[in-house]
Amino acid sequence: MDLGVLAQPVVLAPVLFFFVALLFSMLGMGGGQLYVPILFWMGFDFTTQAVPLGILLNVIVGGSSTVTYVREQLVDWRIGIPFGIAMIVFAPLGAYATTWFPTETIVAILALFTAAAAVFIASGYQPREELGFSRRAETGVGLGGGSVLGFFAGLIGQGGGVFVVPLLYMLGIEAKVAAATSALVITGAGLSSVVSHLAIASTPIWDLWIGCSIAVLAGSQVGSRLMATRLESETIKKIFGVVLFGIAIVLLYQAFGA
């Protein structure tokens, strides 16, 4: 086997993204936090290749995972639908507001929130009984939470899944249901921006795009089925806590490392 061929970006990227999709689909996220920087580090143009392809892969993972979770009846529709709709509406507003705020400050705040969410989830605390949210109240919280997180997701150019799961868990949603519902939310939110970004990439590198799309589709199916049928909620919480800490570090690096 020619190791030089394996090192080619059009071959290496799909292999890496299969495992990224496998992991992040188990957590109700699409993996966009990694696709874009990895593609950029491999030398692909940020605007016309890395960002649009990263967003497309994020939607593929979310949609593929959602199909599995719907079959397993893990999605909380009452909070997921209003959450997703609110994110679709408010994400463009956040993107428009990028010139109003110091980017470094916003990213630093979100990084601290991410790290705090990791500690919260790892602690095992789940405040449903204390907060006493009714199903109707959860719908309202979905609209409110989706509006806020959608705005901030648009502000920093992220899909939002990293923030959706902690909030759902804080509302008392069981870990597996929170991850499954987040997959639905990020799919809807991603669809609102994927078309415009694809229009920017007028000349995709088709072997890269097709290879990565197939890889994340396969990875998301493996990961979502593992989560739905094999993993316990406690295991998911531990994995998610570690991933959140890693993402918090990446966010801080993006804000202050360059």
Score class of each variant (00 low, 15 high):
86 A>K: 05
86 A>F: 12
86 A>E: 04
87 M>V: 01
87 M>H: 07
87 M>D: 01
88 I>R: 02
88 I>V: 15
89 V>N: 02
89 V>H: 02
90 F>L: 10
91 A>T: 09
91 A>P: 01
91 A>E: 03
92 P>E: 06
92 P>G: 04
92 P>A: 04
93 L>F: 10
93 L>N: 03
93 L>D: 01
94 G>K: 06
94 G>R: 06
94 G>T: 10
94 G>D: 13
96 Y>E: 11
97 A>E: 08
98 T>R: 15
98 T>P: 03
98 T>V: 14
99 T>I: 13
99 T>N: 15
100 W>G: 05
101 F>Q: 02
101 F>W: 07
101 F>Y: 10
102 P>Y: 05
103 T>S: 13
103 T>A: 12
103 T>P: 00
103 T>K: 12
104 E>Y: 08
104 E>T: 09
104 E>P: 01
104 E>A: 11
105 T>K: 00
105 T>L: 07
106 I>T: 10
107 V>S: 04
107 V>I: 14
107 V>T: 13
107 V>R: 02
108 A>H: 08
108 A>I: 15
109 I>C: 09
109 I>V: 09
109 I>G: 03
109 I>A: 11
110 L>S: 06
111 A>S: 07
112 L>E: 03
112 L>A: 11
112 L>S: 04
113 F>D: 04
113 F>Q: 06
114 T>E: 05
114 T>N: 03
115 A>G: 08
115 A>I: 13
115 A>N: 05
115 A>Q: 09
115 A>S: 04
115 A>H: 02
116 A>Q: 07
116 A>P: 02
116 A>H: 05
116 A>Y: 14
119 V>K: 08
120 F>T: 08
120 F>A: 12
121 I>M: 07
121 I>Y: 02
122 A>T: 11
122 A>G: 09
122 A>N: 08
124 G>P: 08
124 G>L: 15
125 Y>P: 00
125 Y>Q: 09
125 Y>I: 14
125 Y>H: 14
125 Y>F: 13
126 Q>C: 10
127 P>G: 00
128 R>M: 13
128 R>S: 11
129 E>W: 03
129 E>Q: 12
130 E>W: 11
130 E>Y: 13
130 E>P: 05
130 E>S: 12
131 L>G: 08
132 G>R: 07
132 G>Y: 10
132 G>D: 09
132 G>P: 06
132 G>L: 05
134 S>W: 12
135 R>V: 14
135 R>L: 15
135 R>Y: 14
135 R>H: 14
136 R>L: 15
136 R>K: 15
136 R>C: 11
